[in-house]
Amino acid sequence: DDGTENIQVGYGLGIGKAFAEFQHWIKKLKNRGIIIAVCSKNNEETAKEPFEKHPGMVLRMDDIAVFVANWENKADNIRRIQSVLNIGFDSMVFLDDNPFERNMVRENIPGITVPELPEDPAEYLEYLYSLNLFETVSLSTEDAERTRQYQDEARRVSLQKSFVNEADFLKHLAMVSEVSHFSRFNIPRVAQLSQRSNQFNLRTVRFTADEIGKMSEDDHYACFSFGLKDKFGDNGLIGVVIMEKQSPDTLFINTWLMSCRVLKRGMENFMLNTIVKYALRNGFRKIVGEYIPTAKNKLVENHYPDLGFVKTNIADRNIYVLEVDSYKERECYIQEEIMDKNGEQ
């Protein structure tokens, strides 16, 4: 309301210094792979202006994955941000200096974390440090690219609104998936996905990098990683399938997980087409999958039935079987790029 020139931020004294230090902390979070979004009650042009023009601002538009500014209530706008990011509300933290806005978001979005910030901005950092909200298990090179990946995703969401037909939109994306076995180049990311993925994770089995490395060298396993890129950018490694060779004719899917960033692109169909081709080439006739429910993976409750697997009568387990010989390749609009263990085509 005061205009860009009157915003108090910078390394002078008082409140301006406090806000600058607060922004430096947020910038460090972003560099560690924490996603930064802005939810502002303002005109979009006015809200963006300080990030673009104010000399004392530490954060710039390039640091922000999703920027939402309008006069709607913040709970609805946070839901809009969540729909772009495709993460659970329980993975989101809402910081706001207005007690009314904090309470409104708390009451309307179950699961979201809303710290009760001190009145004095100079006390923000000490208080937030004490909450330990942003600890990460591991950090990969792809974490540094996360903000750009979500900026790309916001552009995809905007483009999709111009298409009536979903298939036309998917074709327009010109998607390519990099399919690779596990290697020294991707094992850290595969392990990280197994540790972090909760929603699109059929059995929620966690692996260390050492365990992944051992499986990659063990003929008892067939291991696949999947990347995805399109006309907007590269999403990096977003999917993992690990299959155990249970018998000469049966593969068991030990792990099937995928980043929620690429939901509704047809990757599930593409991944299944890929593992069925592997099964046919190697003489396997059945692929068995299991769904183990958790508090967070209800999203994939019907994953196997939706893909044509048939549920078995095994008591107390959700076991599904796909007959490979009768499988018909599922429709998707993704081209395949096969990589070897050295990361080369």
Rank of each mutant, 00 (worst) to 15 (best):
H172G: 00
H172R: 01
A174Q: 15
A174H: 13
A174W: 00
M175V: 05
S177Y: 08
S177H: 09
S177P: 07
E178W: 01
V179W: 06
V179E: 11
V179F: 06
S180H: 08
S180G: 13
S180V: 08
S180L: 10
H181G: 14
F182K: 02
F182C: 03
F182W: 11
F182G: 04
R184Y: 06
R184G: 13
F185N: 13
F185P: 00
I187P: 03
I187F: 06
I187C: 11
P188F: 08
P188H: 09
P188E: 09
R189L: 15
R189Y: 12
V190N: 06
V190F: 08
A191E: 05
A191P: 01
A191F: 07
A191V: 04
Q192I: 03
L193D: 06
L193Q: 13
L193R: 13
L193Y: 03
S194F: 03
Q195R: 14
S197M: 13
N198H: 11
Q199P: 00
Q199R: 15
N201G: 05
L202A: 14
L202K: 08
L202P: 00
R203H: 06
R203A: 10
R203W: 01
T204N: 15
V205I: 15
V205G: 03
R206L: 13
T208K: 09
A209L: 04
A209W: 02
E211K: 13
I212D: 02
I212G: 02
G213E: 04
K214G: 00
M215I: 01
S216L: 05
S216P: 02
E217N: 09
E217Y: 02
D218G: 00
D218S: 06
D219R: 11
D219M: 08
H220W: 08
H220K: 12
Y221H: 09
Y221Q: 07
C223P: 04
C223R: 04
F224M: 09
S225W: 03
S225I: 04
F226S: 06
F226P: 02
G227N: 12
G227H: 10
L228D: 07
L228I: 13
L228V: 07
K229S: 11
K229M: 11
D230C: 09
D230N: 15
D230V: 07
D230Q: 06
D230L: 09
K231L: 14
K231Q: 10
K231S: 12
F232W: 06
D234P: 05
N235T: 03
G236W: 06
G236C: 04
G236L: 02
I238F: 03
V240L: 14
V241N: 14
V241D: 14
E244D: 11
E244A: 10
K245G: 01
K245T: 01
K245N: 04
Q246K: 12
Q246I: 08
S247T: 14
S247A: 11
S247V: 01
P248R: 02
P248S: 04
P248Y: 00
D249F: 07
D249C: 01
T250D: 04
L251M: 09
L251G: 06
F252N: 12
I253P: 05
N254G: 12
T255W: 04
